[in-house]
Computed example of a mutant assay.
Amino acid sequence: MSDLDATTPRVFLARHGETEWTKNGRYTGITDLDLTPEGVKQTTSTAAKLVGHGRLIDPARLVRIWVSPRRRAKQTFNSLFGNGDSGSGLVKSDDDRVVITEDIAEWGYGDYEGMRTGEVKKWRKERGLDGDREWSIWRDGCEGGESMDQVTVRLDGVIDEIRAMQGPLINGERPADVMLVAHGLILRAFVKRWLKYPIDQDLPMIYPPGGISVLSYKNRNVEEPGFFVGLALPADN
């Protein structure tokens, strides 16, 4: 399958742009931060290169866009689809295709909100936890927050909905691309579940602020989910 003229439905994942806590490596779940000026540049630059009619992410081919309810994700959605002061966005926030939902909000960090990984590990060990192995959010979850199983349930619900929408259109009968605009950790968890791996599966991933990932299916088969290792971008008109 060539991405140049792909008709197999795709799933675009967009991580929000930089925030002050992104820069500092702090776990940011429910804390409602704005994008930094650099974060806005990241998302508008991505939009200029990848979003638009005839581009990789073509609004005319999108049938559903899930957006996390956090402000940084909403700002990223608006940047990606040109929803500035002019109001001439490619996809407006009140479009019927747009769903604002906690289903793709960031992992609930609970007591670890605002902390760094090293701080969490140190704090847990000081209280006698993790004596035989280091803490892993993927396996151990967060005290006062979400477990691996809880995150799995909500992401699997979204994945089931996506496959129900795209399965009947797997051969390109009509456009059926979808998009998620969310957060770094939850989107990496989503990739694991899309590939049918448990969330604690060791799968090192790097996901920069403002980054775009693309998932789809092998062999036009909804039971063979995959991801693009590389992309052939549409030719300039």
Score class of each variant (00 low, 15 high):
3 D>H: 15
7 T>K: 05
9 P>Q: 06
9 P>H: 09
10 R>T: 04
10 R>K: 15
11 V>P: 02
16 H>I: 06
17 G>M: 02
28 T>E: 09
39 G>R: 00
39 G>N: 04
45 S>Y: 01
55 R>W: 03
56 L>W: 04
61 R>I: 08
66 W>E: 06
67 V>R: 01
69 P>A: 10
72 R>F: 08
73 A>V: 05
73 A>Q: 03
73 A>G: 02
76 T>V: 11
77 F>Y: 11
78 N>A: 01
81 F>K: 02
83 N>V: 11
84 G>F: 10
86 S>W: 12
86 S>E: 15
93 S>M: 12
102 E>M: 13
105 A>P: 04
107 W>A: 07
119 E>T: 07
120 V>Y: 01
120 V>E: 01
126 E>L: 14
126 E>S: 15
127 R>I: 09
130 D>F: 10
130 D>P: 05
132 D>Y: 10
133 R>P: 02
133 R>H: 14
136 S>G: 08
137 I>E: 01
138 W>F: 12
140 D>Y: 00
144 G>Q: 12
152 T>R: 04
152 T>Y: 00
155 L>Y: 08
171 N>Y: 08
171 N>V: 02
176 A>E: 02
177 D>E: 12
179 M>G: 05
192 K>E: 13
195 L>T: 11
197 Y>V: 11
211 G>F: 09
212 I>S: 00
214 V>K: 04
214 V>A: 03
215 L>T: 00
217 Y>Q: 01
219 N>A: 15
222 V>D: 01
229 V>N: 14
232 A>S: 14
237 N>L: 10
